[in-house]
């Protein structure tokens, strides 16, 4: 069985959930081989988690430089492995960096690339959700080793024992003319909340929330549900909540199990970022708000009454 290369998304060996989703999808196509590119020691830390999720092999590509340069060391390592291991496909997380790795890799090795797939079958057919979920597209790569980036949260990660046999590979020397050096990082401190793109519950606030202080109501409901907080563009533009939490056409696309919209009218731009959510609940005082057209359960009412009551009720039921 051919190997399927999975680029491990990690921070200093701390493996992100999306990697397990990639390994799960990779098993449908062949034998998953995890590729760890990072600072020395990353793979040793990541190995157990990768083995638990079915990695038959772990390619270890470590160097001090690999951690300090953007994108290209990963492309260099994957390109070398595409040459030597002749994989059935290369899977990468559809994150900001992952999409670039996938795109650059495809150009480098002369393959086609499919971005932001929401599913992948055993024949290599990727499902994509385009125009904010208005269309479902099935596509495949027809040239070279398929390179596919998979949307975080789209495939459910399943555990499966893998040998995780380590194979050391060299990080190719960096061409200084192409290198982008990271001089300093300020990681997002999102507190204990899950990342917006990975959360199974998202609670978002819109213009109706009225102020930055009032977003505490949104946060409290998110916390009792163990979810992430999102915001509509109107709320972000009004300065109620930081831009990185914006859900919609010009923000993030989310597809959680449960999406709760508080004081969001549901403009087409916002719907494009959340309408593929499994279940949608909306609270809005305007009975004509378009959000109700797509909500599975809508309450016409004052979010300042309804949301705290819901938070309290969930708290009670949880005991």
């Amino acid at each position: 069985m051919s190997e399927v290369l999975v680029l491990v998304d990690h921070v200093d060996g701390e493996v992100k959930k999306v990697t397990f989703e990639l390994l799960t999808a990779a098993r449908r196509l062949g034998e998953p081989a995890a590729v760890v590119v990072g600072a020395p020691g990353s793979a040793a830390k990541a190995k157990d988690a990768l083995a638990r999720h079915g990695a038959a092999a772990v390619y270890v590509a470590e160097s001090d430089e690999a951690a300090d340069l953007l994108v290209t060391p990963k492309v260099d390592v994957l390109a070398a492995l595409v040459g030597s291991a002749a994989p059935a496909a290369v899977l990468v997380a559809a994150t900001a960096e992952g999409k670039e790795v996938a795109g650059r890799l495809a150009v480098r090795v002369g393959s086609g690339v499919l971005a932001d797939a929401v599913d992948l079958d055993g024949e290599g057919v990727a499902t994509q959700s385009v125009f904010g979920g208005a269309y479902t597209v099935k596509a495949r790569v027809t040239t070279g080793v398929p390179v596919i980036s998979l949307r975080p949260g789209a495939v459910e990660a399943e555990e499966s024992a893998g040998a995780a046999a380590e194979k050391t590979v060299e990080v190719p020397a960096v061409d200084p003319a192409r290198a982008v050096r990271v001089t300093r990082r300020e990681p997002v401190t999102g507190g204990d909340r899950p990342e917006l793109a990975e959360a199974s519950v998202v609670v978002s606030g819109g213009r109706g929330v009225g102020s930055a202080d009032n977003f505490a109501i949104v946060e409290k409901l998110a916390d009792v549900l163990g979810g992430a907080v999102g915001a509509s563009r109107a709320a972000v533009d009004s300065g109620y909540y930081p831009h990185q939490f914006q859900v919609g056409q010009t923000g993030k696309t989310v597809a959680p199990q449960l999406y709760v919209a508080l004081g969001i009218s549901g403009a087409i731009q916002h719907r494009a970022g959340m309408q593929t959510s499994k279940t949608i609940v909306a609270v809005n005082k305007d009975p004509e708000a378009p959000i109700f057209e797509i909500a599975d359960f809508g309450v016409v009412g004052d979010l300042f009454q309804v949301a705290p009551q819901l938070t309290e009720e969930i708290g009670k039921r949880k005991g």
């Binding site: 609270v283 009975p287 909500a295 809508g298 009454q305 819901l310």
Partner: peptide, 17 residues
């Protein structure tokens, strides 16, 4: 996507959700 159930809040909107 078709809309599902829509109710007017009668003071128990949170409980209904």
């Amino acid at each position: 996507r078709s809309g599902g159930q829509k109710i007017e809040d009668a003071g128990d909107g949170g409980v209904r959700i």
